[in-house]
Design a binder for these strands. Sequence first.
DNA 1: GCTTTGACGTATG
DNA 2: TCATACGCCAAAG
Length: 111
Amino acid sequence: MQDSHQRIYAAIAAIPRGRVASYGAIAVRAGLPGRARLVGKLLGKTPADMPLPWHRVLRASGQIALPPGSRGFREQCRLLRAEGIEVHQGRVPLSRFGLDGNLDRQLWGML
DNA sequence: GCTTTGACGTATG
DNA sequence: TCATACGCCAAAG
C-alpha cells in the first residue's frame, strides 16, 4: 500500500458525518495538492466493501462524480440522504454541507 | 517506454 | 450556466 493512498483514505475517513468534501480538498488534506484525479482514481479502484465514507466525496461543484443513473450514483444519493444531506439533480449545496463552508475558502486563500 | 485514461480542478469566454 | 482548453499524474495497455 502506497503512503499516498494511506493518507487519502485517512483524509476521507476524517470527513465528519453529515458533511461532504471535494476531491481537491481531500487531495490537499492528504498532502497532495493538485492531485484530485489521483483521489478519484484510487476510489475507483477501491472495492465497495471497504469501510470508507466514499459517498461524502464530491466534485468541487457539488456534483456527484459518478455517472447519473449508475448503480454507484444511486447508492451515493441514498447514503448521503441517509445522513441528512440534501441531493437535488445529483448535486449537493456546498454552501451548507461543504465542511462548514470554510475549508474551500481556506484552501484558495479567499476572504 | 509511449500513449491513453480517469469517481478532478481552474481559468476563460 | 455551459463549453472548451489545459494541467495533473499513477496505472493500464
